[in-house]
Design a protein around this nucleic acid. Sequence first.
DNA 1: CAGTGGTCTAGACCACGCC
DNA 2: GCGTGGTCTAGACCACTGT
Lengths: 252, 252
Amino acid sequence: MVQEDMIIDKHSVIPIYYQLFKYFEKRIRSGDFKPGDALPTEMEIAERFGISRMTVRRAIAELANLGMVYTQKGKGTFVARPKLDNVVFNLDNFYDEVRQKGLECRTKLLEARIIKADPLTAKRLQIDVNTRCLFFRFVITADEEPLAYETKYTIYAKQKPILESELKDSSLSRLAAVHSDSTPVSSKKVLMASQTTEEESEILGVACNTPVILVVQTVYDQNKKPIAWGKTLYRGDRYKLTIYDGWLSGDE
Amino acid sequence: MVQEDMIIDKHSVIPIYYQLFKYFEKRIRSGDFKPGDALPTEMEIAERFGISRMTVRRAIAELANLGMVYTQKGKGTFVARPKLDNVVFNLDNFYDEVRQKGLECRTKLLEARIIKADPLTAKRLQIDVNTRCLFFRFVITADEEPLAYETKYTIYAKQKPILESELKDSSLSRLAAVHSDSTPVSSKKVLMASQTTEEESEILGVACNTPVILVVQTVYDQNKKPIAWGKTLYRGDRYKLTIYDGWLSGDE
DNA sequence: CAGTGGTCTAGACCACGCC
DNA sequence: GCGTGGTCTAGACCACTGT
């Protein structure tokens, strides 16, 4: 147990709680502690390493955040079984993923103008038909090959001109922030499987009825009033959502 | 400012840090603090409410976890701008979503048997072709209507018989845990847009080439060795992934 | 009852940002 | 140098679990 004391360097620039967290993380990953096993009690750890119990608790909190352990009041701290089925898919890595493949990813504006709300947009944004809105169409390309097609609608409260400079890599929430009175605070996205229409096929350069991932996003202000909506079509043959889950190592 | 002291009930069963957290959450949501604004300093809050600085920090940590504030060493704590574009899609709510619509959701086993690894499975599980594996096919139905079709493969290390009882709502990681030597600790899922084959159309009761969401999952043990894989087809006309993002209220 | 984790305190020192 | 958040301590009391 004297060995164990050597694990922690109290005078390191690395926080003690972090060293302790990494120490237990390693021991759990290596199988020294198996799912269901109890960790030593907080007092035991604190005494063994000669540190404060609050510091131990901080380390355990980190482990619990990763889902590697769970605590039970009055009982102890136990190693969790990795849950691999609560899985989330990430969309924010779109550009990163594309770039990681060494491709040049560009957002090209096809169209930006003022329109009168069509029935669908009116319904989505809870406004009257024919209310003035802003309408945008983008194509996202990687090495000149179309990857995704986006159409976006925002309410047009500020009567502010559309600046070219604001259209580079413009996300829906940013468009909404610029042209509406209120601040976007929440958003809803719905992901569906779909197929291209004729028009979409042409823009994406694929055959008609090609499978696509369709994402419809609505952006809301603090009063839950919709202030923008848009849809994005991702070419099913070129784009996938990948996601890793479980006890992932943070250091590799 | 005497009013503010009344916000915190030190003798409540509700922890002080939690009361304080909710207090600031409310004030940020209501717009008393706007994105970019600085919160009072930790010492200021502690003195104002007559509580310890550590307790204040705990409350701020909760806010930071929600992404509502961020801290800067040496500067202060600031209200964040909601990021609505880093969006994740959730698959674990599948059953819940279906049930919330008042439908009865069932997993029906179509087939469970020992097979010899085909080339694809051999590659996916990094084993030799013809190695003995377990093969499962499920259909998930809501009110008797097929919603999803699953095929799953796991390595067959334990030579353990397949128990009917283990096949109720059996996730891939659980199947892997039961029939392999090692514990599943991580998993990879890939989501794609696809179309049904003839066989799949029949099982799902849809026309050929219907759009579907295709999810391929691989389960790994602690040595990153794959121990199971499977694919799930979700009917595109019946299933969507919905996800909310931003500053979500926890209490409504 | 003793032991556990959950909360809280009133200090302390540090590294950092700014003036 | 001063104020900030980040870390850490050595206590304390509580609610809960098991016996």
